[in-house]
């Protein structure tokens, strides 16, 4: 019997080790698996390389993971956004490494990683500082730069519906990087708004087939990053005693 459901976000992230590479889905807050990220903060694995388009906002979710000193290196395309407080400070003081990648190259590197392609050539970034030191080749009269496929030990993603095989659907533009990250990671951990019975998802409408998924945890009412930022929430709560409710909410939400 195949049943990829696990007991909690904590058990889902339990095998993440110091030094691992972790892909985290989401574009800004859309698709950000905030409960899984908070579980990773509680878990405490350090020296991680994290792949995400951004660096989080406020002091929750990905930003909190960075603030908690668990991330040695970020691979992303746009590390500064309106509410990004944590990353810029650490970057300027040399405490975190950044590999800046054009957004489409980032997506293609992840897709290539998931499809067993170690490297590919693209026109993107030719003649710019982001092509420095990379192999260039000319095809049919145009210059291309070589980029490497990206793989990860773990991917943390958020989906709308899942069945116990791990077939997934997503909500609108929250899909973003999740399907390709699911393909590129050895272990894909999914927080899903709703678990459904086998057969409920029309095979025509499955976006990520279950073969790319390893663990499922139902989080029926996920927290919204922008709301937490607006409310001045800091994670973990020990950083700010005034926000003691947050951890309790999390524990409740993460039960299967």
């Amino acid at each position: 019997m195949i049943d990829k459901r696990v007991a909690s976000c904590a058990s889902a992230v339990a095998d993440i080790k110091d030094g691992d590479t972790v892909m985290i889905g989401g574009f800004g807050e859309a698709g950000s698996p905030i409960e899984l990220i908070h579980a990773l903060i509680d878990h405490g694995a350090k020296n991680l390389t994290v792949i995400n388009n951004n660096t989080g906002s406020g002091r929750v979710g990905l930003a909190a993971l960075i603030e908690n000193g668990q991330v040695a290196k970020m691979i992303c395309s746009y590390p500064r956004t309106a509410n990004s407080l944590v990353f810029p400070e650490l970057y300027r003081s040399g405490k975190i490494e950044l590999e800046l990648v054009p957004q489409g190259t980032l997506a293609e590197r992840i897709r290539a990683g998931g499809a067993g392609i170690p490297a590919f050539f693209t026109k993107t970034s030719v003649g710019t500082p982001l092509a420095d030191g990379k192999e260039c080749r000319r095809f049919e009269g145009d210059d291309y730069v070589m980029e490497r496929g990206l793989k990860a030990d773990f991917a943390l993603i958020k989906a709308k519906q899942a069945d116990r095989y791990g077939n997934l659907t997503f909500n609108k533009t929250a899909r973003n990087f999740a399907p390709i990250m699911a393909m590129a990671a050895k272990n894909t951990l999914v927080q899903v708004n709703e678990m459904v019975e086998l057969g409920v998802l029309d095979p025509e409408n499955v976006i990520t087939p279950g073969i790319f998924v390893n663990a499922l945890i139902e989080v029926t009412h996920p927290q919204q990053e922008s709301q937490l930022v607006k409310d001045g929430i800091v994670y973990p709560q020990t950083n700010n005693p005034a926000t003691s409710s947050i951890k309790e909410v999390n524990v409740g939400e993460t039960q299967a």
């Binding site: 395309s77 300027r92 054009p102 190259t105």
Partner: peptide
């Protein structure tokens, strides 16, 4: 001292 950010512009 700027935080470099490129997004999808190069693509």
């Amino acid at each position: 001292d700027a935080i470099p950010a490129v997004g999808g512009a190069m693509d």
